[in-house]
Amino acid sequence: MDRFRHSIPTKDVRPRELDSTDEKIIAILARDGRTTNADLAAALDVAPSTAHARTRSLVDRGILTGFHASVDYQRLGRGLQAMIGVVLRPGARHDSIVAFADEVRRLPQVLQLFFVGGADDFLVHIAVENASEVREFVVNHLSTQQSVATTRTSIVFEYHRNAVAAPFR
């Protein structure tokens, strides 16, 4: 009777290990997300169809989550960047964390928002025109929020991008 049993395929949710080709694709696209499939195939010494299939597999498996542009904020008149550490007040922490993140990440000055462990609850990465705008951002958008206990601002002198981090889920 075994021959009449229907086999139901199971979905293996374990991530397939990356091989050297996958690792090369990730490295190339992390450096330049606009690399063409033809250039990717040439760098890997594989057929374009293979490069495309391998890249598609990395996307489907959730390893590659997007392709990003690197922006020169200096040329946009926002050449001063700062990292602002934010500590929230104790209390209704979950609600405060969610409300803070929802409000701050929508501000046009914010490049990145990190929810972190350690001395700070959040790190807010901003790009503005000058020091007055850093002060204005902290005073008008952070210090005025009831949930914010303290802020600590560090000016970014230089920034080196090695790769783009995955989005928070």
Results as ranks from 00 to 15, higher is better:
A166S: 13
V148G: 02
H68I: 05
T153F: 01
R3L: 11
R14P: 01
A99Y: 05
K11L: 14
L142Q: 00
M1K: 09
G118F: 09
A127E: 07
D102Y: 07
P167R: 10
R93M: 13
N140D: 15
P108N: 04
L40E: 03
D19A: 07
A47T: 07
I25M: 05
V116K: 01
E17G: 11
M1G: 15
I126Q: 01
A92H: 11
I28W: 00
H6W: 05
E17M: 04
H141A: 06
Y159T: 14
D102G: 04
I8S: 08
Q74K: 13
A149T: 00
A92D: 15
R161Q: 11
P9W: 10
G91H: 05
N140I: 00
A51P: 04
T36R: 07
F114Q: 02
R78T: 05
D32C: 05
V71D: 01
T153Y: 02
H6L: 13
A38K: 10
D12W: 03
R106C: 04
D120M: 15
V164T: 15
S143A: 11
R152C: 03
K24P: 00
E158R: 10
A101K: 12
H141Q: 14
A166K: 14
F157Q: 03
P9N: 12
T36I: 07
V71T: 09
M1I: 13
K11F: 08
A43F: 01
